[in-house]
Structure formats: C-alpha cells, structure tokens
Simulated assay, not measured.
Amino acid sequence: MLESLGLDPMEERVYRFLVATAEADITDLIGNLGIDAQTVETILISMRVRGLIRTIGPGRRRFAAVAPDIVLGSQLLRHQQAIDWARREVDQLSEEYRDSVRRRDAGRLVEVLPNRAALQERLDHLQETARHEVLHFCRDHETVLPSEENHAEFAALRRGVEYRVIYEKPLLAEEGMPADIAYGVKLGEQARVMSWLPVRLTIVDHETAVLPLVQVDGISEQTAALIRGGQLLEALIALFECYWERATLLRIAEDGALTERTTRCPLGPDDLYLVSLLVGGASDTSIATQLGVSQRTVQRRVSNILDVTGARTRTQLAWRAATEHWL
C-alpha cells in the first residue's frame, strides 16, 4: 500500500512492525516476520539511509520507526506537488493538442447534430460535464423543461457551476414559467430578460457551443451545430456578453414572485438633458454654449451627475442611461 511512497512490500512489513511495537532488534524482526538475517540487515540499512527508522539503546542495535506523519507526510506532500505539476502540464499539452487538431482539421470545429434526440442528449451531456459556467439564450416558443425535469442544470448548479441565462420576455407570460425561472434563481442561476433574442444558444465553459440550425416548423427535423473552439465560438461568446450587458436583471421579490429589476432615474430633467448631450457626443465646450454656462460649470455638473448615479466614468454613465432607459 505504501509503494507509491517508495517502500517495497518487505520494507513496509518491517516499518509497520516497528510502528506497532515501538522498538525492536534484529532478532525480533527475524522471529516475527520470518525474514532471514541478511535480508533484515539490508532492509534496515536502506531504511536508515532514507530516514524511515532510527537506532536506539545501548550499542544502537535496536530500531524504532520515525513518526509516519514526519517521514511519509513530507513524501506525500512532494508526491502531491508533483501530481499537481503533472496535471497542469497535461492540461497545457491537451490544449496544445486540441489547437493542433483544430488547425489541421477545421472540419472538427463544427459537428452537425441531425435530430432533436441527438441535440437533447448532447445538451444533457455538456451540462453534466460542465466545470465552470454555462451561458444560455432561452427564446420564446422553444422547448423549455419544467423545473421538475431540468435535472442537468440544477445538478450542475448544486456542484458549483455558474449559469447565466437570458430569457425572451414573452416567456415570462407563459403559464408556470415564472415559477420555474424563480426556482433556478433560488439555486443560484443568474437570470436576465430581453424583449427579443436573435437565436437559441448554449455555451459551456467557453469551450463548446450548441447553435440550432434551419428548421421549418412541422416539416423538417430540428438540427443543430456543435461548435468547438475557433473564432466562430469567440464570436458567439461576444454575442452573448453583448446581450447580457443590455438585459434586465430578474430577481425574486419578498413575496417569492419573479420580477424585473426597475431602477428609478435619480436625475432631474436638466441633468438628463445634459446627459443626452453627452451621449450624443457633444464636447464640453459645445454643451456650455447650448446651456449658456461656462465650461467649468459643465464639468462640475457632470462630476455631480457621476456621484449621484454611481458611475465612475462618462462612458459608464452613458451605458447606464441606455441600459436603464433614462433617456
């Protein structure tokens, strides 16, 4: 059992005997372990050199085991460090291998899933093996699993996988959907909503995406593309992040209902007009002229607006004004 730490079976027998008896001499070892004298001598010399045992008593002809947590614990730590290093090397080599395969055979970047069964099977597998994060566009009129059947997502959430999901707004009006979404949010899903989404999309660990292909309702079988890496995947990730920034947060109210975050604009009409000029690209000089004030006054008012809204920069202010519909 201790071979991984450098002890062969005979050495392990001697070490375990010394641990159990506290100390022993060569005669004890020969009599109790059934090993000949020459073999015992050889084993003891080897174990002393490696610090596994020490000599004690008059004439130093008795032997005792060094504490396992000292001598074997340090070896175990070194082994663990070596394993961690090897794992990192394997991960790096695996990534290099995948990149090499992709460059050599671009056809492996995209796999067509020919029917609904294959699509659902692959989506379940991807969620079951997800390690970090799943991104998802959930469109209206698509098949959405009710909470009691959505085992793959909820199991992944429980083991620490992050989910970021954007729902199309009409879904919130469907019977049972708000309760299903609220259940996922309670488990840790980050949910947002938009009035419209361009496509159904699932991205797992920024490594694999599933994108449905052309389907004519009631005529053709649903097909999808499985995309592994490459610039197409990077474009889909960028598409998701763009919509995520613009989407409205869904939260659970005190009564347990699912609601959209609503942010009351903290600015008055005069400040909103100034913000509209900033968003339109007007310079401070131009704004000062239109408002009939000095440029320094414009800068002071902008600074005050940043403080009131919590924005750190003018760009962030413009983004908040757009996403929270202040203008």
Rank of each mutant, 00 (worst) to 15 (best):
Gln92Val: 05
Ala130Leu: 02
Val112His: 06
Asp36Ser: 05
Gly59Cys: 06
Arg139Ser: 01
Leu77Val: 10
Asn115Met: 08
Val90Asn: 09
Thr39Arg: 11
Asp91His: 08
Ile70Thr: 04
Gln92Asp: 10
Arg98His: 11
Phe63Glu: 01
His79Thr: 11
Trp85Ala: 15
Gln75Thr: 14
His79Gln: 15
Asp69Pro: 00
Gln75Met: 15
Val101Gln: 02
Leu33Tyr: 03
Gln38Arg: 15
Ser94Asp: 15
Pro114Tyr: 02
Ile56Gly: 00
Arg48Val: 06
Gly57Gln: 06
Glu96Thr: 13
His79Val: 14
Val101Asp: 02
Thr129Cys: 06
Asp91Phe: 04
Ala65Cys: 12
Cys138Trp: 05
Gln75Ile: 15
Arg54Val: 08
His125Lys: 13
Arg48Asn: 03
Leu113Pro: 06
Arg88Ile: 00
Ala64Arg: 04
Thr42His: 09
Leu113Gln: 02
Glu142Cys: 08
Ile56Asp: 00
Gly31Phe: 15
Met47Glu: 07
Gln81Val: 14
Thr39Leu: 09
Ile83Cys: 04
Leu52Arg: 05
Arg54Asn: 07
Arg131Met: 05
Asp105Asn: 12
His136Ala: 12
Gly34Gln: 07
His141Ser: 04
Ala106Asn: 08
Gly34Leu: 12
Arg87Cys: 09
Ser94Glu: 14
Arg122Pro: 04
Thr55Asp: 06
Ala65Glu: 05
Val40Gly: 01
Arg88Gly: 12
Arg50Trp: 01
His141Tyr: 04
Glu111Val: 11
Trp85Ile: 13
Ala64Tyr: 02
Ala106Thr: 07
Glu133Lys: 10
Val66Cys: 05
Ile83His: 06
Gln120Ser: 09
Arg122Cys: 14
Gln81Tyr: 10
Arg87Pro: 00
Ala117Met: 08
Val49Met: 03
Trp85Met: 11
Leu119Pro: 00
Glu95Cys: 03
Gly59Glu: 02
Leu33Arg: 03
Glu111His: 08
Ile45Trp: 02
Leu76Trp: 03
Asn32Lys: 15
His141Ile: 00
Thr42Trp: 01
Glu128Ser: 12
Trp85Tyr: 13
Glu121Trp: 06
Ser94Pro: 00
Arg50Asn: 09
Arg139Val: 00
Cys138Ile: 13
Gln92Gly: 06
Leu76Pro: 02
Leu33His: 06
Ile83Gly: 02
Ala64Lys: 03
Phe137Pro: 02
Leu76Tyr: 08
Tyr97Gln: 09
Gly57Ala: 12
Arg104Met: 15
Leu77Arg: 07
Gln75Tyr: 13
Val49Phe: 05
Val134Glu: 04
Glu96Tyr: 08
Arg60Thr: 01
Ile43Thr: 12
Val49Lys: 10
Gly31Arg: 14
Arg131Ala: 08
Leu77Pro: 00
Asp124Ile: 12
Val40Gln: 01
Gly34Arg: 05
Ser46Gln: 12
Gly73Ala: 04
Arg61Asn: 09
